[in-house]
Design a protein around this nucleic acid. Structure first.
Lengths: 213, 213
DNA sequence: CGAAGAATTGAGGTTAATCAACGAGGGTGG
DNA sequence: CCACCCTCGTTGATTAACCTCAATTCTTCG
């Protein structure tokens, strides 16, 4: 419950205030009354839901520019948790809602989020374990190299989530995720030595394994 | 491709025009340029995506009041298909976007949709076959009896989707869906004789099987 | 009545989950 | 600095859930 929550002096452009969180702390809990909307300035935030028996599903990992805390009914429907050190801009409820420019920005971001959720539903409902992990790695690459990356050659990405978090994101167990990584490594699709998250990827071999192309 | 598309004379309140579709026709295809936003007036519409090898995932079944065709990038990211006879209101792109009241309505509906997609991701990623089917039936009940239904007694619902469609919605095969229905029937959670979709449900027994409560 | 589509059920195979052991790395306290 | 502990990742053996293939029945519709 008590968590390091530092309000920096630097106020963003406009109406929001800036807030920092260390890695892996709860930013909002499911069921909390919705008092504000949050925008990621730096770092990454995981959005998830828990079942009563402890099963967890992470639906999205938000990067800078992403928003969360938007809800139709005054209560948050999901948990938001920092993955890394995070800086957020907080827009108090009601304050921002009067700006039509702000609303239109939020609307656009929600549309992007819906597309991502659609893609993720396909992954969860219809892809095999290896396809899910391959799709996950491809997402990391696309986030890391925003302009179309050179489809040849090896790229490097850093995996920030633990196997357990990836499992909760992909609807698998951590063992299955680990086995899928090992298989991709055996098949020379990816390469890594130490468990520091750094990973080289052969995009040309990865793409056909995602199920999407 | 050619499909009965009747424009009725009755124009809705405001800027949309009305269009009807028979059951199980494609309303929009993935990749089509987005020319309009659609709102369901009556009937139901399924939103889905196809993988190249034919696997399909349905993410949502829209009922009256629901909208679809909203996209961040000018192209539809998914397929929309009528489940029943459907009447839609069509709002031409750009025309409606100038109305801030319209935008705010769309924004609210998108927020509701995101909640539903979150719930569905939990179902796809973390629930067992029986839990998925039980959750599906519960959704049917909640749609059919919008005010809190009496939690005692038997309720009746009509299942409009085929086993195959339900399977594509729940991330299962049609046989697994059929077996789950059979098991719920054996366990006296649901009851039906003919394959006409009519089904009696004992809500008290259904709820504990959804995994959510 | 016959045909086609939908649903059910069974048998058997495959995938991923579960249970379990072990190794590597990082932090803490002696 | 080293020993210990704890978390994370990997891997193996086994089990369970779900998928696939196949046969049968039910329902609808021409």
């Amino acid at each position: 419950m008590s968590q390091s929550l530092e309000t920096t002096g630097a106020e963003g452009p406009g109406i929001g205030r800036s807030v920092d969180f260390p890695p892996r702390v709860t930013i909002i809990d499911e069921g909390e009354p919705a008092r504000a909307i949050y925008r990621v300035v730096s770092g990454e935030v995981m959005i998830s839901k828990l079942l009563p028996d402890g099963r967890r599903q992470i639906f999205e990992v938000l990067r800078p520019g992403g928003i969360f805390g938007v809800t139709p009914n005054g209560h948050h429907d999901s948990v938001a948790e920092s993955l890394t050190d995070v800086r957020l801009t907080v827009f108090e409820k009601g304050l921002a809602e009067r700006s039509s420019a702000f609303n239109s920005l939020v609307g656009d971001l929600l549309k992007v989020q819906i597309c991502a959720l659609h893609e993720h539903a396909v992954l969860l409902g219809r892809k095999s374990a290896v396809e899910r992990v391959a799709s996950y790695i491809l997402d990391l690459i696309e986030a890391r190299y925003p302009g179309e990356p050179p489809s040849e050659g090896e790229l490097t990405v850093r995996v920030l989530m633990t196997r357990s978090e990836i499992a909760d994101y992909l609807g698998l167990t951590l063992e299955t995720v680990s086995r899928a990584f090992s298989q991709l490594k055996r098949d020379a699709v990816i390469a890594y030595e130490r468990h520091d998250g750094l990973m080289r990827v052969v995009l040309r071999r990865l793409r056909p394994l995602t199920g999407t192309y």
